[in-house]
Each structure stands twice: as C-alpha cells, then as structure tokens.
Design a protein around this nucleic acid. Structure first.
Length: 924
RNA sequence: GGGCUAGUAGCUCAGCUGGCUAGAGCACACGACUGAUAAUCGUGAGGUCGAAGGUUCAAGUCCUUCCUGGCCCA
C-alpha cells in the first residue's frame, strides 16, 4: 500500500520562484483595477494625518538608483504609517524650471531658436519637462510606489507659479527683497551671463604681474623699526585689467609675513613665499627687517597704485601659500572670494566693466578700452608709476564660454537678493532649526553651520525658463518697483494663465490701472527680465502644495531626502518658510546617504559603474530593489552591485519560501471555523507565537524609528532561524502524519496561519508586491488588498518569557545533539536524523528539564528515539552545555514507511506490516 | 583648505551608558535528505573591530593623531 496517500503533504499553487519581472506588472494591474492610488489619496478626516512632503526631483532624464532609493524609502514610510492607522497621502512632485532643461531645449531647437520669442521657447521647455514628468512617473510607479500620480504637483503649473510669485511678494512686503550686485561669469562676446554649468575650463596664457601697494597708514604698535623707508604690500595677479577695480589687499590672519629690506624700500609678503617671490623678481640683495603676523594690519590702508583712493588691508582664511605673495589683490566686483570679503568689510561691489567687456567711459587712463585686451596698457601704466615689480607670462586653467569658446570674465552685475539680516531671517532660521527633529541628529549641525555662514540669497538668474521676478522699472527714472501689492496682482494673473503672461503682455497690461512711479510720478514701466532661482521655486512648495491641498497637513511631519539637501531643498524651504511665516515648514527631516558602487566609489558614466534601476527591474524585479533598500543602513552611504543584489535575491528567496511552505500547509485550513483557542494550542505552537509577538514588537518599533534594516534582519532571521531551521522543520512530522482534523494538526495550522498573516502585513511596506501575492493565497476572509490592511497590533500577553527560556535551553541541547549526529553521519551510522536514537544524561537543572520534556524530545530533535538516563558512558560532552552527555546510535526497530520514524512496533500488525503503531491509529 | 560624516568576518548588519572566549544571516567548504526539491536540514572554516599612541583593573566601545572614503562648500 502507498501510505503517502494517507499523509497531509503541503500543497499550494503559490510559485516557488518569484518570477518578479513578469509578475510585478500583473500585480500592478490589479492595483489599478482596485483603484488603490485613488482610495489611499482620498481625503480622510477620521484618521490622524501623517504628511510626508515629497521633494521634487528634476524633470530631466531617466531616474537613477539614487531616485529609486529616495522614493522607495518614502514609500516604505508612507505605507508603514498607513498600516499603523494613519491617513498618509503621498503627493509626488517635480521641479520643472531651470537651466538644464533650457539648455536641452536650446540644443534641440538649434538655429530655430533665433526666430522664436521667449514665450515660444518657454512653451518648448514646458513640453519637454512634461515629457520627462510622464516618463519618471511611470518609472516610479513601476517601483511599486503608491501615490496620487494623477495629481502630482509641478513647479511649472499656473497655480504653482502663482504661489511662487506670491511668496516672492511676501518677501517684498517684509522688505526682505533688495537689489544688489554680485560677480558672475560673463561672456562679453555673447553678452550674456553664464551659469557654472556653461563654463568650460581650458589652458590659457595670461600675464603674471607683481604690483606694489604703498602703505599709507600709521604703523601698528611695535613696528617702529619699519619707519623711515617706503613700505609696500606686494600682490600678484594674472588679470591686470582688474587692478583698476582693486579696493583691498587680503592677508591671512594667522600666517607669518615678512618685511623685506631691499635697501631702498620695504616689501611685505608671506614668509613662506618670500624666497620664491624674490627669486622671480631677481632681488638678491635683501634682508628680512621683520617677521610678524598680519592680523595687526587689519583695516589699515594702502594707496591704490594708479588712483587717488585707498586700498584696504583685510583678512581672509582663503589666502594660501600655493602661489602668489600671500597678499591677495582684491576686487569685490571681479572675484568670488573678493566679493565675500567685500561684503564682510562693507566695500563697494565695484565694477567698471560694461556688458560688452569695455571699461566705462569715465575710468581714468583706460576709459572704453576692452578687457582683457587692455592688460599690456595696465602693466605699462603700473610700470610708469613705479608700481610694477615684475612681469611674466603664465599658462593656467581659465574659464571659457561653452558657446563661443572665448575666455570669459567675472564681473559684478545687478542681482536680486533675499537678505539674511532683514527681519532677522538668519537669526530666526537658526532658532527654528532647533524646533525640528533632525534624523540623524547631526543634520542639525550641518544645516546650522550653513545657515550661520551663508551670504544673502541671490535669487535672480539671467534666463527665461522659470518664474519671472515680478518687478517693474520706471521708464523715466529707472527706479525699481518691487511693491508687494502689485506683485500679488501679477500673481493673480499667473493663477489664471501661468507666468507665460509675463512674456506675452506689456508692462502696463500687467500693472494695476493707474500705477505711477512713487519716486518720479511717471506711469511708463518696463518689466524685469530676470527669473527666479529654481531653489526658490521648490523652496516654496510648503506654500504651493502642503498648505493648499486639503489632504496635506501643515507643517509637514516629514521631509525625506539625500543629505545633499541640507544645502538644497531643506535649506531653501527653511528660509522661504521662516522668511514669510516665522516657522519651519517641517517637523522632522530624515536624510539618507548616497548610493555608491560595490567598491564604494560614486557612480559615473566615465567609470562605467552605473547601475540603472531599469536594469535591476528587468533582471531581478523591483521587489529586489525595494528589499535592497531595506537591507541597507541608508543613513550612511549605501552600496549596490551585482554581488549585493544577488545576496538580496537569496534573502528574498528565503522569505518567499517560508511563506510558500506555510501556504502549502494551511491549504485545508479555515481560520473562521478551525482556529484552535490559545489555551488549547500545543506548547511549541505557543512558543512560536511568542516568538512572533517579539518580532512584531521589534518590527513595529523599527518602522517607528525608520530603522528599516533592523526590521529586515529581524524578519529574515525569524524566517531562517526560528521558522525554517527549527519550528517548521519540527512541525513536518506532526503536520504530515496527524489526522487532518486532529488537534495536533489544527494547532500547528493555527500558529502558522497567524504567523504568515502577521508576517505578510509586516513585510507589506517593503515587499509590496510579494505581500500582495501571498495575501491572495491566504485562506479566510480579508481585505481585497494587503495595502488596505493594517499592521498586527502588538499583544504583550502573547509573550511567554518562561516558555522562551525553556526553549532556549532545549535549542542549546538540540545544537549539541546536532554536532554528535553529524559525527554519527560521518561514520555512516545514520543518514537522516530520523535514523538515530539519542541517549542523553545531564546534571542539575538540565537533568530535570530533560526528564520533564522526554516525551517530546524526539520530536524536537527530529530523531526516532530519545532516552534520558542518569549517566552515560562513552558519551560526547556538549559544547554549549558541558553538563550534557550525548550518545547517538542507530534507532531501534524498523523504519515506518509512512512516517519514516523508526519504531519497534513496525511489523506488529498483520494488515499494515510496514507502519508503526502511531500511524496505524492515524489512518484508522 | 573648511563644515558634516563613515570605516566591526568576502557581503549586509548587531554589539545600549566601557566588563564574560566580538554576534547574526547570507556567501563559501563539506555532508545529509529527496514528503518545502531550480527547495530543505546539519557541520565547519572566516575578524590583530581602518592604523598608531593614550586613559583605565578592564576599550570595538572614551581621548589624541594619522590613513582611506562620502556629501556639501571653498
């Protein structure tokens, strides 16, 4: 007789292999049919609201693995919050304005662009951005990200642009907006400002000159020995044309300087550079008159070598000994450091160069001359007045225009700024930083230091694809009209048609009727043609999105982005919100690190180590990418590569197979009618549920603290160690051989059902596809999607510590026995563990435990017989438990052909000579 | 150069306020099973906790310096 027919073996259609690349789209189809995105986005007043506000990715290009990490993390947060009973809507957004898109469109249009109006070019940009929004939207959804994909926010829609303009108006109303000057890259040939991305660096030969700046102030105390001879500070520059704009000479506050006595005069330069400089200047006959620290010269005056004005001595940390003299020529209108130094010392941001690269007409000696062609004349003039110490040529890397390939210059231009000091913006922002929970905590220091030291926020860009700065200029007196009320009026116009109207209508059509210039009374205006920095666009999303959408709560509970956003979005959002609302836009900020390759290097096309999400999805499935996110401690940098993904797939397989095995064993279980009450459960089943409850506790806490990798390891270990290697293995005998309706079988099924049910719920935020798949195979009544269900609640009462301690000891015995079984296996005494008979002896407590548990030990050890005795000769001593003695031999009796246990009762019955007594009863 | 940050077995992670031979899973090697089978079970081998100093009865855990990475600035 074939006794296999009498067994209850696992049976399920749940496939062992995930086949994720094919199956995931099918599951997504089901989600679409269930309208999950809509159901989960619908406003809900009954549940507490949890608002995670999405930081908008830039709408250009396919998503990369960093986007995937970011969105999956957000999705895990959203789903876990929802499963904890919150209403947690997710409104995805995109950053649509800005230079990269404008440049791409430029490229696409080519020469055609010259015949197009700004408004037409902007329409092209809009179309381009929308295309990428749609592509990225599909890519994100393919990752299993849930959200209101039908109603995302885009920074280029009319309502958003109107909101942006309003926030700018608010700054204007509070007098936080002002016009100032700042040096930017400028191409005099193209007559245009250039962004950093449009600048190419190439080798270029420049003049190299040393110039004396005569000291004209009183000597500091203790410098008497320098009196009597002319004293000069020596600077070095490769841009003689900026000398006319010089306003200062910068020294390092801590480096040592020397005064060199050449006989006729005294020259000051850094101590660490003097030998080199004097050699270049061919000065051989000198002595060091004095060595000193330069800070005593702070704010003393030199005289400009050409003009009748002072050049201030100032201090700056950025002065180095790499080149030059350690005394740095400073023209605040022509250099970045110079500019910042100028701001610190209250110097004019002076720029005598016009849009075409010509000196202003009134500049003495060089009026109307073109820079940098004027260089030789400047040198000659310096020589003429005796200020030129030396002249040479140098080849170095120099910025060039990417379009016309000509060298560019750095020159101060008129720009719009948000003041960090007006309304104490800086001070308030720093205070509000402390109201926010920064995760990890060091995010606080990071952003604090940045806000503390940053200059005023330059918000203007000389471009067209963006929100216009809604300011007018008087056509007569050129006074800027940055009036809050008028700016709100323009914002109202944007609300209807978008900001394109700025480019389509005349100033007077945009202004309220009867507007006149407050300073001259004139009524003819022109529009500002600069646009806003895109960081301002995204920085006001709290106003444009969170405050406006009824599903969202303000301030948002969480912003979650990469740690680069301390400088980016967290930063601009904080300033935009504090500047207009005196409050931070977020309660908590969570950051993740960057995705590196397997060796820890940043990914780049040139290195060829880029891992595209698309490829991972094709090869492994989006689920593996999601699980990968959960394996990593994302607060630090994370790594990804083939080996790591393979490892994640293996972990996935383990979890999937655990679920499959349980499904196979509960296929005939009806939870509504066959559940065994807690008090009637077998002991080991209660143990399993106790372990489960500890897992539930751990997992819920991990979701709460966003420690997803902790929960991943906990779940994986539970599946591998508690379930697969012990509980489910031990259960096999009972499940397969016990009568279908027996308490033994139903008790095991009750436990397994509850375990899988809880496990599935807990994994759903991470393994969103697989959890749904399992959910569909579970017996019993349930929500139509796992994503409409909630987490299991933690029941402290289900944890039985005494029981767990007992099983911990039994597991230690089991581990020691396994080692001895392995020895017996090596000696060919046994093959399968059921071939074995185990004798045990122990001292003290352990002896009591073994005797007490002797009846179920064979089952727990998965051997045919266990005998507990008081002492054992020729036995092996336990490694975990030195008080334990173990002896293994071939089991007594014959192997039962039904349950495969050895028993002396096999052969006792004439009708069923091949099976044991226990099986005989089971099939009776 | 500055701000922030990381460095524990091949990989992913534990290791709380310093205290038992530094743990887990995976991968690897070897073996078992063939009633979880493109699965499952067992055993084993892997770490001078980035390096060097120091504090302490005691340091992966505290301090100093250095090395190698990452992000953001310059």
């Amino acid at each position: 007789m074939d006794y296999k027919e009498t067994l209850n073996l696992p049976a399920t259609d749940f496939p062992m292999r995930g086949n994720l690349p094919q199956r995931e789209p099918e599951i997504m189809q089901r989600w679409t049919e269930l309208e999950l995105d809509r159901k989960l986005s619908e406003p809900n007043q009954e549940k507490p609201n949890f608002t995670l506000h999405d930081g908008p990715p830039y709408a250009n290009g396919n998503i990369h693995i960093g986007h995937a990490l970011n969105k999956i993390l957000k999705d895990i947060v959203i789903k876990s919050k929802r499963m904890q009973g919150y209403y947690a809507p997710y409104v995805p957004g995109w950053d649509c304005h800005g230079l990269p898109i404008e440049l791409k469109v430029d490229q696409k249009l080519g020469k055609k662009k010259r015949e197009m109006t700004k408004a037409e070019v902007r329409r092209e940009c809009r179309t381009y951005a929308k295309e990428w929004v749609d592509i990225q939207s599909d890519e994100f959804r393919r990752l299993g990200i849930f959200g209101d994909w039908q109603h995302p926010y885009l920074t280029m829609t009319a309502d958003y642009e109107a909101a942006t303009a309003r926030e700018l108006a608010r700054f204007a109303e509070r007098e936080g907006l002002y016009k100032g000057r700042k040096p930017i890259h400028w191409c005099s040939s193209c007559v245009t400002a250039l962004a950093e991305a449009e600048v190419e660096y190439e080798d270029h030969t420049s003049p190299s000159i040393f110039v004396k700046f005569p000291y004209q102030d009183e000597l500091p105390a203790g410098f008497d020995e320098l009196a009597g001879k002319p004293l000069s500070f020596v600077i070095w520059t490769t841009t003689p044309w900026t000398i006319p704009a010089n306003l200062a000479v910068c020294l390092h506050p801590e480096l040592l300087y020397v005064a060199i006595d050449t006989g006729a005069e005294l020259l000051v330069m850094a101590e660490g550079l003097h030998a080199q400089v004097l050699a270049e200047l061919n000065i051989t006959d000198f002595k060091i008159a004095k060595t000193f620290q330069a800070d005593v010269f702070d704010k003393k005056e030199c005289r400009h070598p050409l003009y009748d004005r002072a050049s201030l001595l100032v201090l700056g940390d950025y002065v180095t000994l790499e080149a030059g003299t350690g005394c740095v020529h400073t023209a605040p209108g022509h250099g970045h450091d110079d500019y910042l130094t100028g701001l610190r010392y209250g110097l004019e941001i002076y720029n005598p160069v016009d849009d075409y690269g010509r000196y202003r007409e009134d500049l003495e000696f060089f009026g109307k001359e073109k820079v940098p062609a004027v260089n030789p004349q400047v040198s000659a003039k310096l020589a003429e007045v005796g200020a030129l110490l030396g002249e040479d040529k140098i080849s170095h890397s120099y910025p060039h225009c990417w379009r016309c390939k000509k060298p560019i210059i750095f020159r101060a231009t008129e720009q719009w700024f948000i003041s960090m000091e007006a309304n104490q913006l800086r001070q308030k922002a720093l205070e509000h930083i402390n109201d926010v929970q920064w995760i990890p905590h060091w995010g606080r220091d990071r952003i604090y230091n940045m806000i503390e030291n940053r200059p005023d926020w330059c918000i203007s860009r000389q471009r067209s694809w963006g929100v216009p700065i809604t300011v007018f200029y008087c056509g007569k007196c050129d006074e800027a009209l940055a009036d809050g009320k008028i700016m709100h009026h323009v914002a109202d116009l944007f609300e209807e048609t978008g900001s394109d109207i700025w480019y389509e209508k005349e100033a007077k059509e945009l202004l309220p009727d009867g507007t006149v210039c407050p300073s001259c009374g004139h009524d003819d205006f022109r529009k500002e043609m600069d646009i806003l920095d895109v960081w301002f666009d995204s920085g006001v999303s709290h106003a444009a999105v969170v405050e406006k959408r009824e599903q969202l709560k303000t301030p948002a509970d969480l912003y979650l982005e990469g740690s680069d956003q301390h400088r980016g979005w967290f930063h601009s959002s904080l300033l935009a919100s504090v500047g207009t609302r005196d409050a931070a836009p977020y309660r908590a900020v969570l950051t993740h690190g960057f995705v590196l390759d397997e060796k820890g290097r940043p990914m780049s096309k040139s290195v060829g180590n880029v891992i595209a999400p698309e490829k991972v999805i094709k090869q492994y499935g989006a689920e593996i990418l999601r699980l990968w996110v959960a394996t990593q401690d994302y607060r630090n940098d994370t790594r990804v590569g083939d080996a790591i993904l393979k490892q994640v797939s293996e972990a996935y397989r383990r979890i999937r197979n655990t679920a499959r095995y349980i499904l196979g064993n509960i296929h005939d279980f009806d939870p509504a009618t066959q559940t065994v009450a807690d008090k009637d459960l077998l002991e080991i089943d209660r143990w399993a549920l106790s372990r489960l409850e500890e897992l539930v506790n751990r997992v819920l806490k991990s979701y709460d603290s966003y420690d997803f990798h902790v929960l991943y390891h906990a779940v994986h270990n539970f599946c591998s160690v508690d379930m697969s290697a012990f509980y489910l293995d031990v259960l096999k005998d009972r499940l397969y051989t016990s009568p279908t309706e027996s308490l033994e079988r139903r008790s095991a099924q009750t436990a397994m059902y509850r375990i899988l049910e809880a496990l599935t719920r807990m994994m759903a935020p991470v393994l969103s596809f697989t959890a749904e798949e399992i959910w569909g195979f579970m017996p019993g009544e349930r929500e139509e999607s796992i994503h409409l269900a909630e987490f299991p609640s933690f029941e402290d009462s289900l944890i039985d510590n005494a029981l767990e301690e007992k099983y911990e000891r039994i597991l230690a015995v089991r581990s020691d026995v396994a080692k001895v079984l392995e020895l017996a296996r090596a000696e060919k005494i046994i093959g399968h563990s059921l071939d074995a008979r185990v004798e045990l002896a122990a001292d003290g407590d352990l002896a009591d435990l073994l005797k007490q548990e002797s009846a179920q030990l064979a089952s727990l050890l998965i051997v045919s017989q266990v005998e507990v005795t008081d002492s054992l000769a020729n036995a092996t001593t336990g490694e975990n438990l030195p008080e334990l003695k173990i002896r293994v031999s071939k089991a007594d009796g014959e192997k039962c052909s039904r349950c495969w246990n050895y028993a002396t009762t096999v052969g006792e019955h004439d009708d069923h000579p091949e099976i044991c007594h226990r099986c005989l009863q089971a099939i009776a």
